[in-house]
Amino acid sequence: MHLLIPFAASHDENCLAILPSLNLPHLQKLLSRLTAQPLDAGDELSLSPPHERALARPLGLPVQDGQIPWAAWQAQKRPDLVPVHGGAWALVTLCNWQASAHQVTMSQIPMKDLNAAESDQFLSTMQPFFNEDGITLYPLEPGHWLAHGAVFAQLRSASPDRVLGRNLEPWMPQSTQANSLIRLMSEMQMLLYNHPTNTLREQRGALPVNAFWLSGTGEWPAPLRTTQALEPTVIPHLRDAALLENWRGWREAWHALDAREGLTLLQASARGEAVQLTLCGERHAQTWHSQPLTLRQKIKSFFGPQRIQDLLKQL
C-alpha cells in the first residue's frame, strides 16, 4: 500500500501559522516506523509540481519539468486510439480566465458543473480550428480532451495545479513553437465569448468556458522504463482548500485524512504489510517506506521522532 498526498504543505505564511495546531496522531506514529527516502527537491516555480513527479516515477514515466507525458500515458490506455498511439500529445482542459487591468488570472480549472453534452458542444465548435493547426482532439471526460499533434513534441507546459488562482503570464508556454498555440488560445477566447452553451451556463449561474489550458505534453517514451515500485494511490482531499488558501479548511481535511487513510496505513503497517507514504508540498516531495531502521535512525527515534509538523514545514 502506497499513499501519495499532494498539497500536504505550503510555505504560505498563513499555512505555516496554522501548522502547530495540526494533529495527525496516526501518521505521526506511522512515520516513526518507516524509513525516509532521499528528498525529491524542487521549487515552487517548477511547471510539474512535486506530486506529479512522485506519481510519474513509479509509472516509469520520464520526469522532465513541464514534459511528463500524461496525455500520451492516457492515450496508451485507450484501445480506440491504437492507430495513433505514437507521436506527441497534450491534455486540453476547458477553463475560465478572469481579466483585470493588469493581469489574466485562472479562475476555474477544471470547470465545475460541466456536463458531457456541454463538453461535446464545445468540442464540436473548437475541433475545426485545432484541425487547421494539425491538432486532432479526442474526448476524454467532460471538459478534458486528448490532443494529438507534432507541436506538442518538445513543448513544456504547466500543470493545472500550478495555475489555479494565479496570474497566467509566468506560466504560459514560452518556446518558439508555442506561438501558434498562443494564437489558437486567443482565437478560442473570441469564439467562446458568445457561444450559446455559455449563454445557457450563465443563465443557471455557472461560469462560462472562455479558454483552454494545455498540460501533460510530450511523446510516449519508447521503450517505457520498467519499474518495480508500488503504484501510489493519490489522496486528493487537501487540494481544493490549499489552492483556495482556505487553511482552516485544509487543517480539517488533514484531520479527516489522518482519521481515515492514516489509520488504514498504520494498521497495515502493524500487520507487517509493506507500506509507503509520500507527502508532497509546493516545492519538495518525501517518501517513507517499510524498511529496517539503521542504527542512526534507531538512536534518533529513541530521543523522540521528528514531529510531523516540522517535516511538513520542510516541504
Rank of each mutant, 00 (worst) to 15 (best):
S157M: 07
N96K: 11
I68V: 11
L45I: 00
S180G: 15
L4C: 14
A117F: 05
E245F: 00
D65C: 01
L61R: 09
L55C: 02
Q127K: 07
C95K: 07
H237K: 13
R283Q: 12
T105Q: 08
S269N: 14
G143P: 04
H144R: 15
T93Q: 12
E202V: 12
Q189S: 12
L265N: 09
L3K: 08
F302V: 08
L191Q: 06
G134Q: 03
R239S: 13
P69E: 05
L114R: 10
S100D: 13
A54I: 02
A270T: 02
L137M: 06
A75H: 03
V104R: 06
W145H: 04
A8E: 06
K77I: 11
K300D: 14
G42Q: 07
Q74T: 08
Q297K: 15
R296K: 13
A116C: 06
W145Y: 10
A222C: 08
R307C: 11
W89N: 01
F303R: 10
W89G: 02
Y138F: 04
K300I: 09
E52W: 15
N14H: 08
E245I: 00
L191S: 10
P83V: 10
A88Q: 05
I182Y: 01
E118I: 03
P6M: 02
P49E: 14
P232G: 13
P160Q: 13
H11N: 09
M1Q: 09
T278E: 08
L140K: 15
I235A: 15
V275F: 11
P20C: 05
D240E: 12
H148I: 01
W73N: 15
I308E: 05
L263R: 15
S186E: 13
W247T: 07
V234S: 07
R239F: 04
G262D: 15
R296L: 12
I299R: 14
N246L: 11
R183E: 09
K77W: 12
Q228S: 14
H289G: 13
A274D: 13
L24G: 01
Q314C: 04
L91Y: 10
C95L: 05
S175D: 11
S301M: 14
W145N: 04
T93V: 15
N194V: 03
L191T: 09
A8N: 12
Q276P: 00
F212T: 03
L137P: 02
A90M: 12
L30M: 03
E187T: 09
M188F: 03
L47C: 08
T125H: 06
P221V: 02
R201C: 03
L311P: 03
N167M: 07
L81H: 10
A241E: 09
L146V: 01
A101C: 12
E13A: 12
T105I: 12
R201N: 11
S119T: 05
R225H: 12
Q121C: 05
L214T: 08
A72M: 00
W89I: 08
L181V: 05
R296S: 12
A270K: 07
T294L: 11
V234M: 13
Q297L: 14
L266R: 13
A256I: 08
G304L: 09
Q154R: 06
T227R: 07
D65L: 02
N198A: 14
L155Y: 06
L47V: 06
L207K: 14
N115D: 15
Q67G: 08
Q127E: 10
N96Y: 12
W97S: 08
L137H: 02
R53P: 10
I68Q: 05
T287D: 03
T125W: 07
Q28W: 03
A75E: 01
W73V: 03
F212P: 02
T176G: 06
G66D: 01
